[in-house]
Design a protein around this nucleic acid. Structure first.
Lengths: 213, 213
DNA sequence: GCTGCATCTTGTCAACGACAAGATAGGCTG
DNA sequence: CAGCCTATCTTGTCGTTGACAAGATGCAGC
């Protein structure tokens, strides 16, 4: 796959996306250059522009891919709020590049139809997962909706789906933990596995007295 | 202040910092150009380089300033974990530019001595604030330490100051809420005041059954 | 086998970050 | 007061980048 035969590459778009994700994972989104990307893929400097239009277009494609991967990860996590949270953190760490792009709306076109659709897919998966946990010792579920105000404004479509406070709290805690972990801001001593560390942190939200594990 | 008399500006460094913070607040850190910054300040295109060395130096100065502002904000919040959290979120929203820079270590030199010192100052203020709440209905305090692993590695100095899990959970939830708010990822319907919204979210962590206010 | 079109290339331009070298001015020493 | 000294700011330049335009290539369908 991704053999670079003469003129027509065959699957250049995929190759560029993979190389971009790898480069972002190494040096962050800001350091990504379209020309360096083309160099990595062994094509001319203007080839990426054809597939993605411009830099923002490339990040838009990565964001779409990221929301799809997130949906898949959440779908495989079951309906427990704890497991969903751990899956969220593990997604962020395993797919660091996607995660960083997804939550930097200034990098891409967050109102792009494909982005909206992918975001809606992942939101639907999350809602479906949470619907499982109906009556639990932990507070009841609502209908969450990750990332629906891309530009900072842009009102909802008037639907009464204001997420329950506990889901918002859960989203905040896993998103914050993942972000701090990726930023290297967390103190050492949490171990190497972000999933395990996240599990013990999330427990503080779910149970009133989570001991100092 | 900041009068632009002939050759020597008088307080160009301060002027540049202010202009940079404003520009970042408008368009994000990635869009900040040293030359555009110089243009805003009415100086030549190489003037910023003298004061900050390079682009990373500018962001380093902003990060230092940000940690100092955060320390001040936390100092004025009292020792309640809830109030500290609200202050954290309000800092992030009011000083969005500083906050965004601070938690993007790839933008600046996170191991710079001045940064380490400023970070230590804000950590000390937080520790002092938390020391107040000794015996409470909520779990006991530990010794937190915001952002002590800048580059992703860099082990602690072997001190046994592993933060308590509940403080980590608190930090995660406020940091996550602030980040999601700034990213425009939160659904509408939370109102206009991030402090109030944060307060109700944080309550879910502190009390076992926080109603759906 | 010819044409249409997506794919990729070459060429170019303005803007940028970084660096070097020079100009200016305020302060300090004598 | 004279001379220098140094921080501050300017001008000039180089390599790189993103974006655009125009052309080359080759696959796919008629």
């Amino acid at each position: 796959m991704s053999d670079t035969r003469g003129y027509h590459h065959g699957d250049l778009r995929r190759t560029l996306l993979d190389a971009a994700v790898q480069a972002i994972g190494e040096s962050g989104p800001a350091a990504l250059s379209l020309r360096e990307l083309a160099r990595r893929a062994g094509v001319s400097h203007a080839a990426p522009a054809h597939h993605f239009g411009d830099r923002a277009g490339l990040f838009t494609a990565i964001a779409v891919q990221g929301y799809d991967i997130l949906a898949e990860a959440l779908a495989g996590a079951g309906g427990e709020l704890l497991d969903l949270g751990v899956a969220y953190v593990e997604f962020a760490v395993r797919h660091r590049a996607h995660f960083e792009v997804m939550f930097h709306p200034d990098l891409y076109r967050a109102d792009d139809p494909e982005v909206r659709a992918a975001r809606e897919r992942s939101g639907a998966v999350l809602r479906a997962g949470l619907a499982d946990r109906s009556a639990r010792p932990t507070p009841a579920a609502g209908t969450p909706d990750p990332a629906d105000r891309p530009g900072g404004d842009g009102d909802r479509d008037g639907s009464p789906a204001e997420p329950q406070g506990d889901v918002l709290a859960a989203w905040s805690i896993v998103h914050g933990f993942a972000t701090l972990w990726l930023a290297g801001a967390l103190p050492a001593g949490l171990g190497e596995d972000p999933g395990d560390a996240a599990r013990s942190v999330i427990r503080h939200l779910l149970t009133p007295d989570a001991g100092t594990d």
